[in-house]
Amino acid sequence: MNVDKRYRYIYKPLVFIGCLTPIAWLFAGGFGVLGQSLGPDPIKFTLHTLGKTSLNLLILTLLVTPVRHLAGWPHIVRIRRMLGLFAFFYALLHFTVYLVLDQELDYASVLKDIAKRPYITVGFTALVILIPLAVTSTNRMMRRLGRRWQTLHRLVYVAAILSVWHYYWQVKRDVREPLVYAAILAVLLGYRYLRRARSRRAVATSRSGSATAPERI
């Protein structure tokens, strides 16, 4: 089986199923099957599970590039779009549960929350940022936008930072887990920064006509 087929028939379906697992567990909990339960406060549990899943997928999306470089798996980039779209899907569900079940469609209260409560403002901004990224995720949009596509999609870094921030701020006291997320995100973004800095330096060195060969990056 060649790479194309392996991705199409094995890896992508597996990632797809994996991405649907959290919501399947929520359904199992909601219906009380497979020994699952949403606990005494099912709304909060669902809200947190969806939010956390979105964040996890966002982190996985950002992990694709480093893995591609470091493990030398160029094709892994093919699953990135799916991961990113699922991150958006869970973020949207997270907001929907907040709006419909938690706030009971009390729009006045939701608007007040978004304007007044910094952690909600930050989380909502992250969601809004993800919208154009999801909309422009098709092959056609990639072609149409050309180089601007990549510039636009760098916004995912901002969305990821805001998501971790949103999580950090909503925790009452025990910030250990949000800090772990922040650390992972820092590594993922730091990797990109260093790589860019090195490649710039390499370009500068080669342009200046130096005798030494550009550093391998």
Partner: peptide, 14 residues
């Protein structure tokens, strides 16, 4: 960080 105007009574499910 959050409103205290309302509360959710635990135990009433979804």
């Amino acid at each position: 960080r959050w409103s205290q105007a309302k509360e959710r009574r635990i135990g009433n499910g979804f």
